[in-house]
Design a protein around this nucleic acid. Structure first.
Length: 481
DNA sequence: ACTCTGTTTCGAGACGTC
DNA sequence: TGAAACAGAGT
DNA sequence: GACGTCC
């Protein structure tokens, strides 16, 4: 036995994770196991063609440096191979997200995307996907790799993140409305299966790292095993209630509910980094809302109507475009990327027409539920926005302190200071709207500037590429576009 | 030349102090 | 999980 | 802006 996972270690692992051996196999077969790269050598299995049982067996035997494996172990290997095929299958189903929609809008429209500052949204109500935020808090709010905890050892990272982020928003005059996830649609099951496989992988890798890996590795994998549990969600809801910040529960996807609220005019916009939200017809999408102040990055404001208008698309066409680009619900057609997708929809107007005019070069996935995906975008399961009651109220300071300080061990002064901010900004609530006077003004000046910025950026982007390659040579005259 | 695809790597919160 | 930057392949 | 702390 030279290096690598020991047989004992592996079996031990298996024992711990009987049902999760998915993870281990996945990990072992992964083309580039990140952990123990040097020690796991039999990793050349390509994702497209799972190794045969024999190949796997042989590799494994060689790896362990054994003449032959016991019968029991052989059986295990067989089982493993079967599982691995399933996993690889799952992986091949991996649907890509929208790597392109944002860029596509950037490059093909003039002013559907506007950069701004957080201050511009003073006084506005904004819907936020709570689960997304909470998830990122659980991953990011850490100290020395460990989540923050109360004295009793309960995680408090999510409360920490939610509390201060909400404070910051309120401080900027934003009235946040949090939207919690319900049950995911069944069409998403493929995606979810993929995720759970990944979780299993991470869990196994995490366990393995704890045994033989470095602290960094352990930390890395611990982040990947993060899950937003019901308890965590409930605590967050409780916190929001104490803070006087409203929330609603979506029957299904929070993104869809956010969009519906925005569409109905209940809130000004949906804030999300996920372009999916646009497909649910939010008139305005705010991207990178919270990054701006600290990192000096602008808040990106995306207008759906302008995007569609400039692309010359109807809503149906826009959705079809998004489906071609790739969404959570179904795969993409191989060889159809952003450029081709745009061209196809422009030419044929709908996926149906695209399909009937599609050359034989393109292999449409056999099971391609684009109609279902479309349906989900057009008629998502949501609660009628008119039935959503939400109000921003004064914080219940006593309860807030009891909860955060009493139960979770937060610093009392900080919590009280936060509560003061909440109360103070609530007063602006009734007055609000002072900034409405400002809005029309920037429209001329800023949009002009925005437009210039846009075209400059685009020009710069293209020139960068073109110039970098061609201007150097001095060969010069290729005014692209 | 253009497009699509695959690989790799990194970061992901918010606050205050210095 | 994903986004960005890069290299590679197919057309 | 680079760091340490929050719990």
């Amino acid at each position: 036995m030279k290096t690598g996972i020991t047989l004992v270690g592996l079996i031990d692992c298996l024992r711990k994770y009987t049902c999760k051996c998915f993870g281990i196999i996945f990990f072992l077969l992964s083309p580039q196991p990140r952990l123990n790269k040097a020690r796991l050598r039999f990793s050349s299995a390509s994702p497209s063609s799972p190794p045969s049982n024999l190949t796997f067996y042989t590799r494994f035997r060689q790896h362990l440096g054994l003449q032959q494996l016991s019968l029991l172990f052989t059986r295990w290997v067989l089982k493993v191979t079967t599982l691995s095929e399933q996993i690889l299958h799952l992986r091949s189903l991996a649907n890509t997200r929208y790597p392109g929609l944002f860029h596509l809008l950037q490059e093909n429209t003039q002013d559907s995307i506007k950069d701004g500052e957080i201050k511009q949204h003073f006084g506005r109500k904004i819907a936020i996907d709570a689960s997304m935020s909470i998830y990122s808090f659980l991953i990011a709010v850490r100290s020395e790799g460990q989540q923050l905890t109360s004295e009793t050892g309960e995680t408090t990272s999510h409360l920490m993140g939610l509390f201060y982020r909400t404070l910051r928003m309120v401080d900027n005059g934003i009235k946040p409305l949090y939207v919690f996830d319900g049950r995911p649609p069944t069409l998403k099951s493929g995606e979810l299966a993929k995720r759970s496989a990944r979780k299993a992988e991470a869990t196994a890798a995490h366990a393995e790292a704890k045994e033989v890996g470095t602290a960094e590795e352990v930390e890395k994998f611990s982040r990947r095993t993060v899950r937003v549990t019901k308890e965590i969600n409930d605590e967050c809801k409780r916190l929001l209630t104490c803070m006087g910040i409203p929330y609603v529960e979506a029957p299904c996807e929070a993104e869809a509910q956010c969009a519906a609220l925005a569409k109905a005019g209940k809130v000004y916009a949906a804030a999300s980094d996920d372009m999916d939200t646009l497909c649910f017809e939010t008139p305005i999408l705010l991207k990178k809302l919270m990054l701006s102040e600290m990192k000096k990055e602008p808040v990106q404001e995306i207008y759906l109507d302008r995007a569609m208008q400039e692309l010359g698309f109807t809503r149906d066409q826009f959705i079809d475009l998004c489906i071609l680009l790739g969404c959570d619900y179904c795969d993409t057609i191989p060889k159809v990327g952003p450029t081709t997708a745009l061209k196809l929809i422009r030419e044929h107007k709908s996926i149906e027409n695209v399909l009937s005019h599609l050359g034989p070069k393109y292999a449409v996935p056999k099971k391609w539920p684009y109609q279902d995906a479309r349906e989900l975008f057009k008629n998502p399961l949501i609660t009628d926005p008119d039935e959503c009651e939400f109000k921003w109220e004064a914080p219940d300071i006593d309860k807030l302190v009891a909860f955060l300080v009493g139960e979770k061990g937060f610093n009392e002064d900080r919590v009280r200071a936060g509560a003061v901010k909440l109360s103070k900004n609530l007063k602006g609530n009734t007055q609000a709207r002072v900034n409405d006077f400002f809005k029309p003004v920037p429209k001329t000046a800023e949009e002009l500037a925005g437009l210039k910025r846009k075209s400059e950026e685009k020009a710069a982007e293209r020139k960068k590429k073109v110039k970098a390659e061609k201007a150097e040579k001095g060969k010069g005259k290729k005014g692209k576009r």
